[in-house]
Design a protein around this nucleic acid. Structure first.
Length: 410
DNA sequence: TCCGCAATAT
DNA sequence: GATATTGCGG
């Protein structure tokens, strides 16, 4: 859905954000940004769209008459956008809205389908899908505001902050643009150019880019840390294998308990990081565990799919579950879940009801197989340290069923 | 003018 | 507290 608040201000002050004015004038002039159209947003397959995102004739000559726009936004089945929609993929996209927020509007999550703000801005909201394009430059200087350096208002200024809600889809577009440009050339203006979303300003992009880089930096630091731990783990594993003396019984599976990277609860790092690097769930359904994610024996986590800028949280989520099968308990972190492996199917089921350090668990046959395979690949490493006896036994039984040798290779 | 960082606002 | 916007110096 779309909401546009064409507060028909025609007098604008020059000292306002020129870019926002440009955005506004773009809309006025008929080059209505395709991405600003909520109806489009609801049905567009952005992967397809991306190819021709710069085509401005998707919605040619759109009038800016407030009423027309209002109707346009609400009807959702108008002629032009219908045509466009039908040309687009019907693939369901979770959330791909652009939400322009006036600083005083409180509509998020209101559940209203359409409300009219005090300023006459129509806001169409559909659950989490809403698009509010609000390039308002209100006429009555009293209400329009331009924050000064002190964050105060200047009554004579009319610009109002437009807050962009960086939805997953929008962010994905952003990431695509950044990656396409490369690190060096990924500057706001070019990103904006590539994204082809007229209703965004360079400032919007710059702001987002700043945060994005910040996250990237943070992420790299974490990955470096993880790599460090991985090295230590390898060394440990090698030492254990070479110095362990060869024979192994069940107790040997329980070897060391220290020296491995702590399993950090997913919500710690991936807690609503909004949409950072989120490749969107439609690309990677939670219930699917792609084969290509099968990890190498020694890395703490399988390498991320190359096409992702950052792994989807669910990716880590799943693999965190994998690791649980041989993850050491970490002080300060709630006990790991315990599982009982169904002897027939090999599918583990949650055994305890203790605190769950991760998200909901939906283990699959594949996940168990992967865990077991992981174990088999390095049987001298501690296996079920994250588990407690019942589940441990079940895993071991399963391992034995699969002919796991009790004496690991030396 | 653009960029990026820091401060500030929501 | 997270995230977006604005200010400001380079």
């Amino acid at each position: 859905m779309l909401a546009v608040s064409p507060s028909r201000n025609t007098t604008t002050t020059k000292d306002e954000s020129q870019e926002q004015m440009e955005s506004y004038s773009t809309i006025v002039n008929g080059e209505f940004p395709d991405f600003c159209d909520g109806d489009l947003l609801e049905s567009i397959d952005f992967d397809d769209l991306f190819v021709s995102i710069n085509e401005k004739d998707v919605l040619p000559n759109l009038e800016m008459d407030p009423e027309i726009l209002a109707e346009f936004s609400v009807s959702g089945s108008g002629g032009e956008e219908s045509d466009v929609n039908t040309s687009m993929s019907n693939e369901k996209v979770e959330d791909h809205s652009i939400r322009w927020k006036d600083e005083e509007d409180k509509f998020s999550g209101s559940g209203l389908d359409s409300i009219l703000s005090s300023r006459g801005e129509e806001i169409v909201s559909k659950k989490d899908e809403s698009v509010v394009v609000n390039p308002v430059l209100s006429e009555d200087g009293e209400k329009g505001r331009k924050p000064t350096t002190q964050g105060k208002n200047n009554n004579n200024q009319r610009k109002r902050k437009m807050k962009v809600d960086w939805t997953p889809e929008l962010h994905r577009r952003f990431v695509q643009a950044v990656e396409q440009l490369g690190v060096d050339k990924a500057v706001p203006s070019r990103i904006l150019e590539l994204m082809g979303i007229d209703c965004l300003t360079r400032h919007n992009i710059a702001s987002h880019l700043q945060k994005y880089r910040s996250h990237q930096k943070h992420l790299l630091a974490r990955q470096a840390e993880a790599a460090s731990w991985s090295q230590r783990r390898q060394m440990y594993g090698t030492a254990a294998a070479s110095g362990g003396g060869g024979k192994t019984d069940i107790s040997a599976w329980h070897a060391p308990t220290m020296g491995f990277p702590p399993i950090i609860p997913m919500h710690h790092h991936f807690r609503p990081l909004h949409v950072w690097g989120h490749p969107s769930m439609d690309q990677f359904p939670m219930h699917i565990w792609p084969k290509h994610l099968v990890h190498s024996p020694y890395s703490p986590l399988p390498p991320p799919p190359p096409t992702w800028h950052q792994p989807d949280p669910s990716y880590w989520h799943h693999h965190a579950h994998q690791r649980r099968f041989h993850a050491p308990p970490v002080p300060g972190i709630p006990p790991h879940a315990m599982f009982k492996v169904d002897p027939g199917t090999g599918v583990p089921t949650r055994h305890n009801s203790g605190p769950e350090p991760f998200l909901d668990l939906h283990p699959t046959k594949e996940s168990v197989d992967a865990a077991i395979a992981d174990v088999l690949s390095k049987p001298w490493l501690p296996l079920p340290l994250g588990l407690k006896p019942p589940a441990t036994d079940s895993v071991l039984v399963e391992l034995q069923k699969q002919g796991v040798p009790k004496i690991p290779p030396t």
